[in-house]
Design a protein around this nucleic acid. Structure first.
Lengths: 186, 186
DNA sequence: GACGATACGGAACGCGCGCCCCGGTTGTCT
DNA sequence: AGACAACCGGGGCGCGCGTTCCGTATCGTC
């Protein structure tokens, strides 16, 4: 359990790898070759694998932070806005962030097929679920959807926004339309 | 321009390849290896390439038919139902078909990034566009979306349905929700 | 039946990528 | 400074897949 102290160069390289990985994953998502990350970090591929057992592990290490920050955002919104607005704003924010960060996009879309509800991966969904429940209790969101549906909706929103942006259309419209759809039917 | 008549075995093999490709693409989409198609057709990989210059060309040959049939369906719906219903039914039908056919799914989702508006690929979108325009004229669909948006919406619907079905949820709910969102705002 | 054209099959190639290995280097501790 | 462990780099392996090549089999024709 005790973290053995790393040698100075090892610690420096680890940081460089994380930094390069963040930039690379952010720009190209999981699709970026690991060698490319190593190159950008000024490091050999072997070095990357000494610090992270797998490409996926590196990816998770990078995404961990984003997820945590998003969960904090959700918390903040829940405390400062009315339930419907908080839910609305958070979904829009997640989509917006994902458009700027392919890593986030990939992480959100593959999230939870084989459900891994632990750690930060779980936190963001817990937070999102809390916002959803509150909005539903407030009558701002239709009652017949649950967190599972919400994941599908989020993936759908990402898909739609991606398509729309490739055509140079104004951003956020599709997300607004989808959010419209989540209101209780009149 | 004149089609040179194929040898008998060549014609037979071509048919077998198309048949196997239809089954394989339908089940696994573009992800199926070409060798697998050749194997299922009882044919060597070289034979496939003699009839189709590229895996993608084979894929298009297979999808051609589905697209044509869907375009016909659109036409039929346009003639037998009121505009709003026709539009609604067609979108639902396309999603439903795509859930049964990964090839259709792949074809619809990659459709039109580098727009290739010719042939059957174009026909289906023309037909869909006509349904959309009619529904909008009738006040059944909000006026501020166009064919380009519609493609995004369709991709989104496919994404959502896929997610939802992986969780064993009832089919079509997400599509209904999305269609709800396309109604004129009250 | 024989012969040229045509088509066949599947081994082989090129490529990209995740991951591992090992000879050399660098940091740390005495 | 010397010695030992820790760490580094990048070449190489294995794999999957799209595509090509060529020796061989089959078809159509006279």
């Amino acid at each position: 359990m005790a973290e053995k102290p790393l040698r100075a160069d090892a610690r420096r390289n680890r940081a460089r790898v994380l930094e390069a990985a963040e930039a690379a994953f952010s720009a190209e998502g999981m699709a970026v070759p690991l060698d490319e990350i190593a190159r950008r970090a000024g490091v050999g591929a072997g070095t990357v694998y000494r610090h992270f057992p797998t490409k996926e592990a590196l990816f998770e290490a990078v995404i961990h932070d984003r997820f945590r920050r998003l969960a904090e955002d959700a918390q903040a919104l829940a405390e400062t806005r009315r339930p419907g607005q908080a839910f609305h704003a958070f979904l829009a924010r997640v989509v917006e962030q994902a458009m700027l960060n392919k890593a986030l996009c990939d992480a959100l879309e593959t999230a939870g097929s084989p459900v891994k509800p632990q750690g930060v991966e779980g936190d963001i969904w817990d937070a999102f679920g809390a916002l959803l429940a509150a909005a539903q209790r407030d009558g701002a969101v239709r009652a017949d959807i649950d967190l599972f549906d919400l994941r599908a909706v989020l993936s759908g929103a990402l898909t739609m926004e991606r398509h729309v942006r490739e055509g140079g259309r104004p951003a956020g419209r599709m997300t607004e339309i989808l959010l419209d759809a989540l209101r209780p039917r009149s």
